Simulated assay, not measured.
Amino acid sequence: MKTEPLTEFHRVLLIAALGSASVCVFGVADTLTRGAVVVSPGATSADVVVADPSGAQLALSAAAGLPTCLLATAMLVLLYRLVGAARRGDPLFSARTVGKLRTVGWILLVGGPAASALEFLARFALSGTVGPGGNYAEFDPARVAIWMVTGFGLLAVGEIVRRGQDLRAELDEVI
């Protein structure tokens, strides 16, 4: 029995969204229950293990990875819903599809850099809690670039679909 590609995409997106949500939940639970926090206090220093972290240190440690996880989960859920609508017969070249693609694109374009900044700030603040070395955190511009390129890509696909919608309307007038 041959399955339709959208059905397979829909299943994979569901599995990915559930997996991503699980990583978010279990990651925070692990951080809050493991009883120790690992902190990078400086570029040349070894990592510091805080055996009995304060509540603030636990919260900052959890916040150091949660925004990206939540963003990825949101993206996967929105794409899952978009593919589900297409499977149910929602026309591909519709204003609704264009709107959903644009929404995901803007979420990634704005949310990716915001998530990276929030995680950087959490790591920076956390490093300041472990001694006289001051605050330190590394910022990864490649992560921001990946989110932005993905967001721009979805905005571009949304525009392609919008133009396809215009061509379809024009063709309907001719026929």
Rank of each mutant, 00 (worst) to 15 (best):
V48A: 14
G133W: 10
T33Q: 02
S61Q: 10
A29F: 11
D166T: 15
G131H: 06
V38S: 12
V130I: 14
V157K: 09
M75I: 05
T97E: 00
G55S: 11
C69E: 12
P91L: 12
L101A: 05
G65T: 14
V104A: 12
D166F: 11
T33H: 06
Q165N: 04
T73H: 00
W147H: 13
T150H: 01
V110Y: 10
M75K: 05
S127M: 08
V50K: 01
L167P: 01
A43C: 00
L71I: 02
A59F: 13
G65C: 05
A46I: 10
S40D: 13
S54Q: 07
G128M: 11
G133Q: 15
P67C: 10
A72H: 00
Q57W: 07
N135I: 01
G99C: 03
L121C: 06
T33V: 13
I107K: 03
V161G: 00
V144H: 02
E138H: 11
G133M: 12
F124W: 15
L58P: 02
G112N: 11
L78T: 01
V157F: 13
G111P: 04
A62T: 06
L79I: 03
S127F: 03
G99H: 10
V48E: 13
G99V: 06
A115H: 10
P113K: 13
R87S: 05
G134M: 09
G112M: 07
S94I: 15
R81F: 04
A62L: 04
M75S: 05
R162G: 03
P53V: 05
D30F: 15
F152P: 00
D90E: 15
G55W: 08
A86N: 01
V98L: 06
F93W: 12
S54K: 08
L76R: 02
D30S: 14
A95N: 01
L58R: 12
V157Q: 10
A51Y: 06
P53E: 01
V144Q: 03
R81V: 14
Y136M: 05
L66K: 07
L78N: 09
L155I: 14
L60N: 04
S94A: 12
A115S: 15
V130L: 11
A72E: 01
T129N: 08
A117P: 00
P53W: 03
V39H: 06
G84M: 02
G133L: 14
G134F: 13
W147V: 11
W147S: 11
K100R: 15
A145Y: 01
V130Y: 11
V161R: 00
P53F: 01
A72P: 01
G134N: 09
L71F: 00
I107E: 07
F152K: 04
R162L: 07
P41K: 08
V83L: 02
G89C: 02
V98I: 06
T73S: 04
A29V: 15
A64Y: 00
A29P: 06
A63W: 12
P113N: 08
R123T: 14
L167I: 13
